[in-house]
Amino acid sequence: MSRTFRLDGREIPFAPGQTIMDAALAAGVYIPHLCHNPEFAPHGSCRVCVVDIGGRQVSACTAAASEGLEVDSASEMIQATRRAILQMLFVEGNHVCPACEKSGDCQLQAVAYYVGMLTPHFTHFFPRRSIDASHPDVIIDFNRCILCELCVRASRDHDGKRVFAISGRGLDSHLVIESPSGKLGDSAFAKEDKAAQVCPTGAILPKHRGYETPIGRRLYDREPISIVGDTRAPGNRQSAREVD
């Protein structure tokens, strides 16, 4: 006998052990997310997948599905909360879309479009962060890192390398690289690694192919992320083209 909960009025079946996000993804219902990738253990850090269950706001990627739940993911209140979270992510880093090779293929940008963010609204931090171009095939622009830890999880759990970690606390949290110099070029990282392919922003970018797909013909240029899915979703032809 299948169990179900209700997501914005729609019955969603689930198996024991699934999260609300798992069940929604399996049913083809989009809940915005950045730090979640079904290939890795849930992280619950970006809070973009916030949903309301009985007046309590939880992250859909970490909340267990259970029989009879009434989940609100589409109300204006939830969308406004997501917009505010996105706005904070934008002002906390340096996200200059017109100067970013990832623009149009960027999950951060696409989710911001989806929730109707027109402006970052808050006061910009304009943090001073560096760029690491030491690796021959991949560049890291720390200005664009949102600390989702997808590269950390991919390198540790899939590649078995532990190239990345988050260091520091609070506002000082930042991505660090395991190598004698702290540079990516001196690490065990390779462009074939899963960790090279999971970044939801332009923080980890392949070199030498920036504008192979012109602006205007990119993944999220014509249709929203709720329809075309994540950049690295399995079976996504765009992602297959981008990363060999």
Binding site: C97, S103, G104
Partner: peptide, 8 residues
């Protein structure tokens, strides 16, 4: 329209 809002 969706295509009218972009940051780039």
């Amino acid at each position: 329209a969706y295509t009218q809002i972009h940051y780039d």
